[in-house]
Simulated scan of single mutants.
Amino acid sequence: MDQRRHVGDQERKRLLDPLTRVYNRAALNDRLEHEFRLWKKYQRPFCLAVIDIDHFKQVNQQFGYEVGDKALKIVARTIYQCLRDTDFIARFGGEEFVILLPDANDDTRTEILANISHTIRKLPLKFKNERVAITVSIGATLFSGQDTPTPVLERADQALYQAKNSGRNQIIWC
């Protein structure tokens, strides 16, 4: 029994990002494949969004990596708290997160993404009595037609870069 528990603990650790304690890219790949198969079978709305912390390099440069790490942890936790039980978050790399919103209608997914953006913008993050303003840019898309995960991820990433190039702190659908 102890060995089984130990193996389960090791498996969970393998799938979690050590800093933010949300899922990592390996877990994302597994979950994305699972949700993709369900989407193919049932054709329910399936949204994928890429979230990037705006001007994160400046946060690290101005306040130090400790504050940057703290910001990553807080942003990850905030995104997680804005999601439904059926949704999924993973740290994609650096200051980027990917969320999966399966079976979310237009109103639901719009509300979730807007709530993430709004809640992060209002975070009371401070360092030495100076407010550290954090905003995010979000690129989102829906699975459709003959989509597979790779082009959907690329489309969401393109939407993210449109959001960044259009002034940041916004949600772009592609």
Rank of each mutant, 00 (worst) to 15 (best):
H55D: 14
R31S: 01
I112V: 13
K40A: 05
E111K: 10
P18A: 12
Q3H: 14
S144W: 04
T141G: 03
L83M: 04
P124A: 15
N29V: 09
D54A: 09
R155C: 09
F88R: 00
I99T: 08
V152P: 05
S117M: 11
P45Y: 03
K122N: 14
A26S: 12
V152F: 06
A163K: 02
T110E: 15
A159R: 04
I74M: 10
L38R: 14
F63H: 13
V152L: 08
V59T: 11
D9T: 06
V7L: 15
A140C: 06
A27C: 03
E96Y: 04
I74A: 10
P124H: 14
Q162E: 08
A27R: 01
I74E: 12
G68Y: 07
G68D: 07
E130M: 14
I74Q: 15
A140D: 01
Q62V: 10
P149F: 04
K13M: 15
Q3A: 15
R31M: 11
H6W: 12
D107Q: 11
T150F: 11
D17G: 09
K128Q: 15
T150S: 13
T141H: 05
G64F: 13
Y65G: 15
V132Y: 09
H6T: 11
F36W: 11
Y80H: 13
T141W: 02
T78Y: 02
G145S: 13
G145W: 10
F46G: 02
Q62D: 08
G94F: 04
W39K: 07
A71Q: 07
Y80V: 05
N60S: 12
V50D: 00
L123R: 05
K126D: 04
E35F: 01
W173I: 11
D30W: 00
K126Y: 13
E11S: 07
E96M: 04
V136T: 08
Y23G: 01
T110A: 13
L32Q: 04
